[in-house]
């Protein structure tokens, strides 16, 4: 085929791929270019995962304070956030990274928060939850336009599960607990990533707690990542949780806490980081394995210092 023919084919291909984006209104420069309930992200209109924006009824109007007659109308804009988290979770709401309010989820894990007098404009909202054991979720961020004089309901906010690890260094063969909280009685999908990902499904309890015990016997030595997501019976899916990292090791190396073959100030720093911890998440910091990182571990390190 001649070169110039190939050039024209390539150009037409680009045009045919690009047209649908323009015709269907998928290309945008701002949220207003998108359909209702969509947001403009990276110049493409997209629907935030499960979140829907509903305009309910026009809001009431009230005269300005202290003014009489005049005829000036000041519409009230009300925004209602609704979603799912975990039982008695503490929900924080952000607007352009500033906290605007908080709420507490009920015993079923549902929450609702109403803001009146929300200023109009395009805002980036953020929502995160803290479970009743002190773990925090990732922050869900989305942008939307607030229109004056109406009540907007932003629902379908399904906050990601919280997640924590029983240890960050695991000796191969020992169990590792991956646990947290999620919406009660939902399916929790726990992913463990390395070369070949492991996917496990468990159920959260009535109180929203979930726990998965990973068997490390057949796993290779190395660094792994893990994440979790919740799915309700109705098929609603949460965002992914924070990604946590852990390491599978064949054993601790005495006072060489960072496995670099030396016992020096870096190892001392690691020891200090876990100082006083009982059953530390870095099990190697407890050099003498007596269940606590204390002065005995420090003394052993001083002995091997080079």
């Amino acid at each position: 085929m001649r070169l110039e023919n190939k050039f024209w084919i390539l150009l037409l291909g680009i045009i045919f791929i690009a047209i649908p984006f323009f015709v269907l209104g998928l290309v945008c420069t701002q949220n207003a270019d998108c359909l209702s309930g969509q947001v403009c992200r990276n110049n493409i209109c997209s629907i935030e995962k499960g979140i829907s924006v509903t305009l309910i009824v026009p809001g009431e109007v009230t005269p300005p304070p202290g003014g009489g007659g005049g005829g000036t109308i000041w519409p009230i804009t009300t925004v209602i956030f609704e979603g799912k988290a975990y039982p008695e979770a503490f929900i924080t709401f952000l607007r352009n990274k500033t906290v605007i309010g908080t709420a507490k989820a009920d015993l079923k894990g549902d929450f609702s928060k109403t803001f009146t007098g929300m200023p109009v404009g395009v805002w980036e909202f953020g929502i995160f939850a803290e479970d009743n054991e002190g773990r925090k979720s990732v922050t869900i961020s989305f942008s939307t336009s607030i229109i004056s004089g109406i009540i907007m309901k932003i629902s379908g906010i399904f906050i990601s599960p919280t997640i924590s690890l029983s240890a960050e260094n695991v000796i191969r063969g020992e169990g590792l607990d991956i646990l947290g909280q999620a919406y009660p009685k939902s399916d929790i999908e726990v992913s463990v990533f390395s070369l070949s990902p492991i996917l496990q499904k468990i159920k959260s309890t009535e109180k929203g707690k979930w726990q998965f015990s990973l068997d490390t016997r057949s796993l290779e030595l190395g660094i792994y990542k893990t994440q979790a997501r919740a799915r309700t019976i109705d098929g609603e899916e949460s965002y992914f949780s924070e990604e946590l990292v852990f390491k599978i090791i064949d054993g601790c190396r005495g006072a060489d806490l960072n496995f670099d073959g030396k016992v020096n100030i870096v190892d001392f720093s690691i020891l200090l980081y876990f100082w006083g911890q009982k059953n530390p998440t870095n099990i190697c910091a407890d050099i003498n394995s007596n269940g606590i990182v204390d002065i005995v571990d420090f003394s052993i390190m001083m002995y091997w210092w080079r």
């Binding site: 260094n169 852990f246 390491k247 020096n264 870096v266 001392f268 720093s269 690691i270 870095n282």
Partner: peptide, 21 residues
């Protein structure tokens, strides 16, 4: 000074840190 750059998965989320004394 004794100065060393370290990295350990279990502290600072595996980011590089400086140890000194």
């Amino acid at each position: 000074f004794t100065l060393e750059i370290g990295q350990e998965l279990t502290i600072f989320e595996g980011k590089y840190f400086l140890s000194f004394a």
